[in-house]
Design a protein around this nucleic acid. Sequence first.
DNA 1: CGATAGATATCT
DNA 2: GATATCTATCGA
Length: 198
Amino acid sequence: MKLKRDFYLQDCVKVARDLLGKVFVHETKEGIAKGIIVETEAYNGAIDKASHSYKYKRTKRTEIQFGLGGYAYVYFIYGMHFNINIVTGIEGEPQGVLIRGIQPTYGIDLMKERRKTDNLINLTNGPAKLCQAMGITKEQYGMDLCNSNLYIEEGISIEDKDVDITKRINIDYAAEDKDRLWRFSIKDNPFVSIKVKS
DNA sequence: CGATAGATATCT
DNA sequence: GATATCTATCGA
């Protein structure tokens, strides 16, 4: 059962927290791939220098962030990698949640084939890795998670005591905003991309 | 471990 | 023309 639009219309920080434990699904003609979301980061364009849409900067690339929540924001980075964000918030508010780590639960052979590795942990413990494993490319830019073959469904419930809240990764260019505690991950899960000592 | 090469769409 | 919400690989 796909999550409904309402879920995505909330603030990006809340959605980032609540996405932990939910199941990310991509159905393609090659097969279905699923994984439990174990690591996320929130980006709020209105106030956050780390966001592509900082100060409501609106370009062809960030356009999708300005619409309703529940759409996929996929972009190409460092000349060779894709990352996927889930757009959140109401129309006009550019926000997103970066998916940084998932735990594969279905279609593992397909993921291994796409990633060219047999190492289970190495399949999806990073934002560009999980995009490759899930078969996400520029093609998925702007897809509606409420009405397409790319979506999120209910999963397991994660208690607050099992959630690590830390600084976000690789945003040193973002000045003081790099210290915001907007990264959420499931404690001691091996598919979390980078461990941060507490 | 830490350092660095890798390669290009996107914005200035 | 500079840079990026990163990853793989190499050397110690």
